[in-house]
Each structure stands twice: as structure tokens, then as C-alpha cells.
């Protein structure tokens, strides 16, 4: 297998999924955001977005904090340090692969 194909096969599968890639790319640009912001920016439905966030949280890339603003529930999200490192590595690998 040549080096470029090897680089493609070694891409992080958690981030490489299109939906999760959009989410991680958005979170990379912010310190933190809420669920509604991601819903609006990604155009996904709530179930789909929740499912991807659960996968990213399980991989340790995203931190989810459920809180309240007054009486209204609010979910705050941010990339963990591992998530930022993983995304930086993913970007470099993708550039190398292409």
C-alpha cells in the first residue's frame, strides 16, 4: 500500500464521518456553544445531532454540560483538549493524504 493510501486508511474514523466532522469543525472555532447553535449551523435534526454528540463524547473529544438558564434547560458543548489535538492531527493527515 503506498503512503497516501496508508494515510487515508489511518484517518480518525470518529471525526471522519461527515456529520461529526462538521460538528468538530464548528466546535474547533468556538470556546463553547450551546446545542441550539450547533442545530442551527449544521442543519441536522435533534436526534441526529444528539447521536453524533454522544459518539464524540464517548471518544473523549467533546465535553457536554447540561445546565439551566433560569428555568430553561441548556446544553453547553466544547471540544476537549484531546478533541482539539485529534482534529489538528486529522487535518494534517488529510492534507498529507491528498
Amino acid at each position: 500500500m503506498n503512503e497516501q493510501l496508508k494515510a487515508i486508511s489511518e484517518l480518525d474514523r470518529v471525526i471522519h464521518e461527515p456529520g461529526r466532522l462538521i460538528i468538530v469543525a464548528l466546535l474547533w472555532g468556538v470556546k463553547e456553544c450551546d446545542f441550539l447553535y450547533l442545530l442551527h449551523e449544521t442543519g441536522m435534526n435533534k436526534g441526529n445531532l444528539s447521536s453524533h454528540l454522544t459518539s464524540l463524547e464517548a471518544a473523549g473529544y467533546v465535553e457536554i454540560e447540561k445546565t439551566y438558564r433560569g428555568k430553561v434547560p441548556r446544553t453547553l458543548l466544547c471540544l476537549t483538549r484531546a478533541g482539539r489535538t485529534a482534529f489538528d492531527r486529522y487535518r494534517k493527515s488529510l492534507k498529507a493524504a491528498l
Binding site: V30, K31, C33, F35, L36, Y37, L39, H40, E41
Partner: peptide, 12 residues
């Protein structure tokens, strides 16, 4: 803005 299109604190 935040109740409609969500809240985000951009990185500095």
C-alpha cells in the same frame, strides 16, 4: 439572538 440561533463564545 441566543434564544433563536443559539449561543457561541468565539475563541480568542
Amino acid at each position: 439572538t441566543w434564544p433563536r440561533t443559539g449561543y457561541a463564545a468565539y475563541r480568542r
